[in-house]
């Protein structure tokens, strides 16, 4: 195909590939923030102090219902008026991390809800403190089953980082756009970006699917064992 220029491809590839590190750094920073803040939201939501629960629910719903791109602009353009000036990278990862923390909170919640009531009661009966209860009893049981779902959000966030280009973060897409506008050739740069995203996200998705099957099998294994034990008892 003559329309595709290989020499131009080799020329722009290193530039775009270098920017991939920014994409990955943004993904991981935002993800860590989402995981931690998500857990905080999930725990606050169970607070006995009802107004706090309502505030958390309302805020989460609002954040989840509005576009991350607009939240990005909000953090980047509005916060400086209140003395908080952030670099594009920090503003971008903050917005993305906060947005996804509301999703992570839902996942944590499903994990926490699936821990049987008896576990809470047993922990109370052994006189664990509230922090100990969470750290030693509840979370170790709540988190392993939700790891695949949390992994899926990692991939989603990775695919959402190109919106950071809107506030001039030079991640992969922005690097391609700059290269493209300099040469008036967008075919190769944007295709390279697409291929890079596919090459990273598709295998990761397969990996997570595998992990999911494995975890399912483990929990099924447990059930089998239970049935066997019952059989022995009968």
């Amino acid at each position: 195909m003559s329309i595709w220029s290989w020499s131009y491809t080799f020329e722009v590839f290193p530039i775009i590939f270098d920017a991939l590190w920014i994409t990955l750094a943004a993904t991981i920073t935002a993800y860590v923030l989402a995981m931690v803040l998500g857990l905080v939201l999930a725990i606050l939501r169970r607070s006995a102090f009802k107004p706090l629960t309502w505030i958390v629910i309302g805020l989460s719903e609002f954040i989840r219902a509005t576009p991350p791109l607009v939240q990005l602009f909000f953090v980047f353009y509005v916060l400086p008026f209140y003395g908080i000036s952030l670099s594009p990278f920090v503003a971008g990862t903050l917005a993305l991390g906060v947005h996804y923390s509301t999703y992570c909170a839902e996942i944590y919640r499903s994990g926490i809800d699936s821990v049987p009531r008896g576990q809470w009661e047993a922990a109370t009966s052994l006189n664990f403190s509230s922090t100990q209860k969470w750290r030693k009893i509840i979370l170790p049981q709540a988190i392993p089953p939700i790891i695949p779902m949390l992994g899926n959000y990692l991939i989603s966030m990775f695919k959402d980082t190109p919106i950071l280009s809107a506030i001039t973060v030079v991640e992969t897409l922005q690097a391609a756009k700059i290269a493209g506008s300099a040469s008036f050739r967008y075919l190769e740069p944007f295709t390279i970006v697409g291929v890079l995203f596919l090459l990273l996200s598709y295998p990761s998705a397969l990996l997570i699917k595998k992990l999911e099957v494995k975890l399912n099998r483990r929990s099924l294994g447990k059930k089998d064992k239970k049935l066997k034990e019952k059989g022995v008892a009968a």
Binding site: K159, L173, G180, F190, T191, V193, L198
Partner: peptide, 14 residues
């Protein structure tokens, strides 16, 4: 596997 914004740019610019 790719991102919406990349697809959008590809369709609009490429």
């Amino acid at each position: 596997g790719t991102s919406l914004l990349v697809q959008l740019f590809w369709i609009y610019f490429v």
